[in-house]
Structure formats: C-alpha cells, structure tokens
Amino acid sequence: MKYIVLFCTLFTFSLLAQETKLTAQELSAFKQRVEQETKSLKSIRTDFEQSKHMAFLSNDIQSKGKMYLRSDGSLKWEYTSPNVYSVIFKNNSILINDNGKKSTVSGEQDMFKKINHLISGSVSGKLFDDKEFNISYYKSGKNILVKLIPNNKTLKKYISEVNLYFPQQDATVSKVKLIEPSGDFTLITFINKELNVQIDPSIFNH
C-alpha cells in the first residue's frame, strides 16, 4: 500500500513540475501578444512580494513594497515592509532613500546598467530579443515560463538564471525568479498590477 501512495505522490509531483517546450506556433503567438502589449505600454504600477529562499533556512525572508515603471526607463522599487527603503533608477543614476537617509550612486557603472536593464526588461517583457541572454520558452501549469540564461560573464557571476512567469492569457509578467549560482533564489510576485495608469512624476523624485 505504501508503494502505491509513494508512486501516486511522485506522479503528482512530476505532473506539477512538468515543463513542456512551446511549439513554434505557440511561441510565435506568445511573442506577438507580448510585443503588442509592450508597444502600447506606457507605465506599470504594482505591489510586489519578495521572497528570498536560501537552502539552509527553513523560512524564506519576506519583504513587500510597490514598483513603478515608466516607458522612458524610470523605475522605482519601493520597499514598505518590514523596512522602508527605496531605489530609483533614473537618467543613469541610482537614487537611494534608506528610511529618510538619501544617497546617489552613479549609474554609469556597467553592472548597474545591467541590473536596471534586467529589472525593467523583466517586468515589461522587453528582454526577449536580448543578445545577452540565451532564452527558452515553456508551458508550466497555467503559466508560460521564459528562462533567460545570461551570456554576459559579469552578470553570470551573480545570476545563473532568470525565470519570468506569464499567466497564459496575460502579456505582462506576474512572477520573476532570480536564481543565483548557488541555487538560492529570490522570487518576486506582482499583485494588483495596473497598466498605463497616470504615475505622478514626483514619485521618481529623490
């Protein structure tokens, strides 16, 4: 009896974890849908939940906040819980507000540009034709999963893979998983996402 239970459990897990590659037709339809959506995309405003998984911890480390993105590339990542902390990527600068304490970092550095490009590109779905990643597409449960493996040596040292999850009928990302070379990862889930809403420009002020 216990072998039947074990078999059923393993079978269920294998079904849950199943990822099948998109057919050429499915891929073309998916890319077209995302391209159309991103062309008309002017802004995104969303809440997010961030969960850091480390193999040696029993509990993931949780944070929450809001994210604002504008088509001109301005991006604000605002943590509201448990810490108040925000980072604005704007005009090649990184503006940090650490619970009221403000500082600025020059965004000219190659690594910062890549991080900004990766975050805004992940959220808006503009990374698909990026030469810096080796990209593959899968169906995973109710999502389309896009796996990006960096080609860039510098980025590879920090991130071994980026997974973007698109709900099947949605053209924007609902989850981003950043996997580190150790296998530990950060999962960011977007909730209450609003597209093309008016974002007060002062949001991006330091």
């Binding site: 911890l57 480390i61 944070s63 950043l178 580190e180 950060t186």
Partner: peptide, 28 residues
C-alpha cells in the same frame, strides 16, 4: 560608504553556524 542589507545567522548544530549577508534586493 554606507550599505544596507539583511544579516542572517543560523546555528545548524552544536558545531556549525551559518551566516549570510544579503542586499535589500535579496542577492547574497
């Protein structure tokens, strides 16, 4: 230069402890 992040410590058993420093974004 000021940095802010998260420090995690866990005593795994009598002989071993693990300590990690993460950025606010979560990277190790």
């Amino acid at each position: 230069n000021e940095l802010s992040g998260i420090l995690v410590v866990k005593k795994l058993d009598d002989k071993r402890k693990r300590l990690a420093l993460l950025s606010e974004f979560g990277n190790t």
